[in-house]
Amino acid sequence: MAFLKKNQKTPFEGGGLVLFSEVPQAMAAEKVLKKAGYEVKLVAPPPELRKGCDLAVEINLVEQPGIERLLKEKDAACAGVLPIKAGTSELLEIVKVTDFGSWVMVKAGNMKITYNKESGVIVNISGGGCPDIPYLHTELIDKLLEEAPRPKDIGFTLCALNADRALEECLALQNGGNAP
């Protein structure tokens, strides 16, 4: 498409860092990620975030789950992924459960999964804003909780990670019989 050919160079603003314990690991990971089409760059991490190595790969933080999965598949070891900005170091894992009688809605972060208590079938997914969420909606709806693909396996973004946390809680509630 003509408009893509005119694509001007855009400075990268990722918001996330993949940390390593050794420099060669960082360089290998950068190569793997670039080959897969991810926009990344090698940077020096701030001293307070270093995990033994003074080289890190800056990523679009939103893409954290897809990137971690790819690095694992390619045996590219990393020591962790963190947001660059201070004060946002922890991925929230607060879960809330709402009872709708025949259905239970589990909310994890900005994602919600609702299933039927009797059948264990996922009936709805709501919340989120990243492009893999409508995809997860089509892939998970009408599936049994136990048989549904895991969002962390087929999604790519932080929204998918929250959806996976919600699904994990749904499974625990359904299997443990602790649903409200």
């Binding site: 900005k85 004060g87 946002t88 991925l91 804003g129 932080l158």
Partner: peptide, 15 residues
């Protein structure tokens, strides 16, 4: 949250 770039990473007291 002035530091957050995605709702998955927000300060606990705000969430």
């Amino acid at each position: 949250d002035p530091d957050a770039t995605h709702p998955a990473y927000i300060a606990r007291h705000l969430f």
